[in-house]
Amino acid sequence: MRVIFMGSPDFSVSALDALIDAGHEIACVYCQPPRPAGRGKKDRPTAVQARAEELGLLVRHPLNFKDPADVAAFAELKADIAVVVAYGLILPQSILDAPSKGCLNIHASLLPRWRGAAPIHRAIMAGDEKSGVCIMQMDAGLDTGDVLLRDELVIGATETTADLHDRLAVMGAGMIVQSLEKYDDLSPAPQLEEGVNYAHKIDKAEAQIDWSRPAVEIDRQIRGLSPFPGAWCMLGKDRLKLLGSELAEGAGAAGEVLDDQLLIACGEGAVRLTRLQRAGKGAQDAEVFQRGKPIEKGTVL
């Protein structure tokens, strides 16, 4: 098919590569415009733009589709279909209707479980046992369209958002290729009206650890916010980012370090920290971290 690809972050790159490998023609790639990043605050292109330019593809990044000229330029591509994955803009009806077969979305949740911006984070933070990918025929609502294809996987007990992100990206890439191959034979299924949740964008205010909460909630918070924005607590006067954890047995005052292997007491139960990062330093596995400047037993975070 002649495809318009619309995506921005790393999660989208696997799908772009898969479509090309499957022989589809990429008429144009749409992504978010470059934005200041890093210490120098220089404009940095999105992961999709960087990959598209490597492949010699036409790239566009309108701020929105309110300008009639941008809508006209989109329609003039005369695409069979648009594939949308973590693009970052809500598409108006004029864009949804432009390709002859409409727009398909790769959504990283078992719809309607998590609609919205942060389905992977929210699945882990909520303690979901399963996640997955839905290929959805887009409509004017927010992730409300009919589902063409769905697949699921089990979320691991110590899996972080980064881990699950990578698995779902690969899954989604395979599924979108399958969807285009079998498009005319697929039967769109309306989403259930029950069990709808909105995956709100992650707020940095959610990242501070409250050690008086139950261990099961803190463990989910740590894993769900890893690697970004990263759950954190204070170690003395310094902020300590927590990027990996697992549930463990232990009891003590909330935030107390119970042994030399970073077992931390919570309001109920305990968690063992498995990956950490000091301010201004790189992330380290707990074993390596403790060989440097260790956090001693009896310390209270």
Rank of each mutant, 00 (worst) to 15 (best):
Q178L: 08
E194M: 12
L168E: 03
V177F: 00
K204Q: 10
M136E: 10
Q178C: 11
T160V: 03
P188K: 04
V154H: 09
L142Q: 09
N197K: 11
L148A: 02
A189E: 12
L192V: 00
S187R: 13
D163G: 10
T161E: 04
M175V: 03
K204S: 09
Q191L: 09
A140D: 08
D146P: 06
D139Q: 08
M171W: 12
D163S: 09
A173N: 09
L149R: 14
H200I: 04
L180M: 02
L192T: 11
D151N: 13
A169L: 04
L192S: 14
G195M: 13
Y183R: 13
L148D: 04
M138A: 06
Y183W: 15
Y183S: 13
A169I: 00
E159D: 15
K182F: 06
V177N: 06
Q208G: 00
K201V: 05
D184G: 07
L180G: 07
D151K: 13
V177I: 09
H200N: 10
Q137N: 05
S179V: 04
A199N: 02
L164P: 03
S187M: 11
G145F: 01
V154G: 00
S187A: 14
L192K: 07
N197A: 11
A199F: 04
E152P: 00
D143K: 01
A169F: 03
D146H: 06
D143T: 08
A189R: 13
R167L: 11
M171C: 08
P190L: 08
Q137W: 02
M171Q: 14
K204E: 11
D166K: 15
G141E: 05
Q137H: 09
D146T: 10
E193N: 07
A157I: 03
L186I: 09
A207F: 03
A140K: 12
L142E: 11
V147M: 00
K201A: 12
L153S: 01
G174T: 03
A162G: 05
D203N: 10
S187C: 13
K201E: 08
I202H: 01
L168F: 12
H200G: 07
L164V: 15
